[in-house]
């Protein structure tokens, strides 16, 4: 069995109003060196070992987990017992 750690981030150039709100709050807490914040998503998917896992995860991300119009994704696959 493998655990897939999927990171979804907004594409560069796509405005992130939520990230901007978080950035403003960090400034309110006087973290003046915060230059930018982008809010994304993190998911863990457990997969039984069947077939090509990389190809499957790519397909899952393209079809559902990320929206390719506005989001990029990356992932790491780890073996779990």
């Amino acid at each position: 069995m493998h655990k897939v750690k999927v990171y979804i981030t907004l594409k560069e150039g796509v405005l992130d109003p939520q990230g901007k709100a978080v950035q403003n709050s960090l400034h309110a807490l006087e973290y003046d060196n915060v230059a930018d914040v982008r809010v994304g998503k993190y998911m863990e998917v457990l997969l039984n070992d069947e077939g090509n896992l990389d190809a499957q995860v790519d397909e899952m991300c393209d079809r559902l987990l990320a929206n390719p119009v506005i989001e990029d994704y990356s992932y790491m696959i780890e073996e779990v017992s």
């Binding site: 796509v14 405005l15 109003p17 939520q18 709100a21 929206n67 119009v69 506005i70």
Partner: peptide
């Protein structure tokens, strides 16, 4: 949009 019947995607409103 999510089904791909129309192009593009939705983001949260500019002012959240």
């Amino acid at each position: 949009l999510e089904a791909g019947l129309l192009p593009g995607a939705m983001l949260p409103n500019r002012d959240l």
